[in-house]
Amino acid sequence: MADDVAHTIPALDAIIAPYVDKTGGLMCALNALQAELGYIDAAATARLADAFNLTKAEVKGVISFYEDFTTRPRGKHVIRICQAEACQSVGARTLTQHATEKLGIGLGETTKDGRVTLEPVYCLGLCANGPAVMADGKVKAQVTEAAFDKLAGVEGDGA
């Protein structure tokens, strides 16, 4: 995950190199950087601009367009709660409210200790089995408040 050693120029270039001549290579490189490093910082942005013959502003424009790309590290655990209609119809709004209260953060925020990032997501394809949650990349269906607390590691916390 994100540590400064991994962000050296040769390390960044090694991640970027396989995608330089591909169709949509910038998207592939961004996905790879995000997966490898956990976020895309200024150094990575500069290397991408160089590799794809773009301005840094153009690269930043692409980064900011997509929800998956971040310019800062997310929390140790990332919990995404579906906000879309199918999950709304079975209580996603109440679950989201519970989650934000329990963790003391809003959607898109990270707990002060850096442990949990809470994010909205619009549909995980579990629309007949909501409310749906993705916790550290793993999908969970029919998530109750108790099940959420377990996922977020806040069982028994008096929030």
Binding site: A84, E85, A86, C87, Y122, C123, G125, L126, C127, A128
Partner: peptide
């Protein structure tokens, strides 16, 4: 890119 809520046929 099946983003519509309520759909999962592609998936």
């Amino acid at each position: 890119d099946e983003g519509d809520s309520g759909t999962f046929a592609d998936r």
